[in-house]
């Protein structure tokens, strides 16, 4: 796994590149370690408060540890009327955790998201940003087994 310090230094001369750096770190770690925010503040020559302010403004970025595979359930109106609540219940049951939690083995985290632009296939979830559409309770074990 690439060190976040190396990742940050690859972006530090890019104007406004802090968000790109955060993306790259998250791609590697599945989240942004707290210490990486401090390192980013130094590299981009801004206060820690600012670097933290940027990282926490964006809901796609997550500061602090979470599971290796991030499952996000779309709860925007089109997915909501298509039965997102049933998908939530089925995923919670399958993984034995509640929304917002991570499985004990650190393998999966469950999160809500707003629309991810795949509304031809509601209800929809993403795992590490890969979309799975027209999700039903029956399909869930098979999808989870891929990870």
């Amino acid at each position: 796994m690439a060190d976040y310090k190396e990742i940050i230094s690859a972006y530090k001369d890019l104007p406004g590149g802090i968000i790109e750096a955060y993306h790259a770190i998250q791609k590697e770690y599945s989240y942004i370690p707290e210490d990486a925010v401090v390192a980013a503040a130094q590299a981009f020559d801004i206060s820690k408060a600012r670097a933290y302010g940027v990282a926490t403004f964006y809901s796609y970025l997550k500061v602090g540890k979470r599971g290796k595979n991030v499952i996000r359930i779309c709860e925007s109106a089109p997915c909501h009327v298509a039965g997102a609540d049933k998908v939530v219940a089925a995923l919670e049951k399958e993984l034995g955790i509640k929304m917002g939690e991570t499985t004990e083995d650190g393998k999966f985290t469950l999160e809500f998201t707003e629309c991810v632009g795949q509304c031809q296939a509601t209800p929809l979830i993403t795992i590490n940003s890969k979309p799975y559409g027209d999700v039903t309770t029956e399909k869930i074990p098979g999808i989870i087994a891929e990870y």
């Binding site: 406004g16 968000i19 790109e20 955060y22 993306h23 403004f57 964006y58 809901s59 796609y60 970025l61 998201t113 707003e114």
Partner: peptide
């Protein structure tokens, strides 16, 4: 290309 990060 620059990436957004989940802010409508």
């Amino acid at each position: 290309v620059r990436m957004g990060a989940g802010a409508y």
